[in-house]
Design a protein around this nucleic acid. Structure first.
Lengths: 240, 240
DNA sequence: GCAATTTGGTTGTATATACAAGCTGGTGGT
DNA sequence: ACCACCAGCTTGTATATACAACCAAATTGC
């Protein structure tokens, strides 16, 4: 491993175990250079990249500090939560709570274009970051499009990964809400008491039509959504 | 402007005018270094940063190339809240709480590319639907780009409408969080007791750089965000 | 007491250099 | 004809150095 990467690893571990709390000062470029017996430019690179990743913030003339830790995902880019966690250098794991076929509730039926009470697949998964629940994923899947969904092993692959392979994504629809978690959600997200949660409702489509409807619920303290939007034309602000 | 930034500007302009089409090769580190009379490390930095921004891609031993343009994503179209309310057939109104110039806090400074404690414009507005508070908008505006911001009348035009006219939007960045409102927010949103709120943090850019940073806070019971995303190609989920 | 200045530490930019790692195309041997 | 090798380019990593910009705290001058 490259030297600058080793320094990054070290710093990330310090932050992770809490040795360097949020907003605390981290070693300066010169201090790191000496500790790791590298040049200042190499130490600088480690600090620089962690800053670009939003792990640190720096102020000229003052120092480098640990940023507030909140995870961030993109609305636009539909990312895989497992990748996201691993990109942060944290341990991703998942707990499969349920994977069944059940009669389709009315709301789901209309969202997926199915008949009520016809079979629909349902999966319930908790995504964890360093063994801390990050997101509860409840997902309904159209069995006509993805008949093998129910026989997958979702401990090693997220539903999103699998679905991307089987039914290439052509369209997605989102709704974001701030909600009170119900008791069931609290329990599985290991929330001691109710706190505001983000719920992202996502309906995805392939060429053949609606594929799945997912409810992704995350505690507001542990998760946030981020997005980046580029406008190619200068004048599309009409719709804004 | 720093030298590496000048090189970036130049390269961006070449790409923008089409002189360097997608997947075409761009000058190597050494070529740029010579053309601009800088060291290879400085030229490298320009290439590096453009790569991190997804403008270029590079392959060791081969060269640097122009990346494919991002697929136009119309997700989370930035709507004007006034239009949104009126589209529902309801009465829109706004209450201007504050419109001042103040010394720029550190976080805002880094977000807008300003110097700390230099002047920045700040506005605080409550948006109401049928006289019920719908959203609290706290906005910091870059005075270098929008010097007349402070003398606008925001009772008949939202800041967003005004900014769209003055500084055409080229880019936006979003973060969505579920938060506890503080006392101040509760008061102005007329929340009897604390309830989960959605906070959309939005940073907008024009060609000249960051224009404004807005914190838009809405009660979860009264507001939600929706979006729609189209993928033009079936297989663009890789490069995302 | 208070304001102006200095000082020391920090990050930011830039340079010159060296070697490693990876790809491509040509050269030569078989 | 084919393969192995090498030369020459590319990007990637690392070092040592210099100076600029900036900030906070200590010092100095009044």
């Amino acid at each position: 491993m490259a030297k600058f990467a080793e320094i990054k690893e070290f710093m990330l571990s310090q932050i992770e175990i809490g040795a360097w709390p949020e907003h605390s000062r981290v070693p300066s470029e010169n201090e790191l250079a000496e500790q790791f017996s590298v040049s200042r430019m190499t130490a600088r690179r480690a600090l620089q990249e962690l800053t670009e990743q939003g792990i640190l913030y720096r102020t000229q003339g003052v120092g480098s500090f640990v940023a507030a830790l909140k995870s961030q995902s993109s609305l636009l880019e539909i990312r895989n939560i497992a990748d996201e966690v691993q990109a942060r250098g944290h341990a991703y794991s998942a707990r499969l709570l349920q994977l069944t076929e059940l009669p389709c509730p009315t709301i789901i039926a209309s969202a997926l274009g199915l008949q009520r009470n016809n079979p629909v697949f349902f999966s319930l998964i908790v995504h964890l970051e360093n063994n801390l629940p990050l997101q509860l994923e409840a997902r309904y899947v159209n069995p006509l499009q993805v008949p093998a969904y129910i026989s997958q092993d979702f401990s090693h692959q997220t539903p999103h990964q699998y679905l991307s392979l089987i039914a290439p994504l052509t369209e997605a629809e989102h709704t974001v809400e701030a909600i009170w978690p119900d008791d069931f959600t609290c329990k599985h997200l290991m929330l001691k008491k109710a706190e505001p949660c983000l719920r992202l409702t996502r309906r995805t489509f392939s060429r053949e039509g609606a594929v799945s409807l997912a409810y992704l619920t995350s505690p507001g303290s542990r998760y946030r959504l981020g997005g980046h939007l580029n406008f190619s034309l200068p004048n599309n602000r009409e719709r804004i």
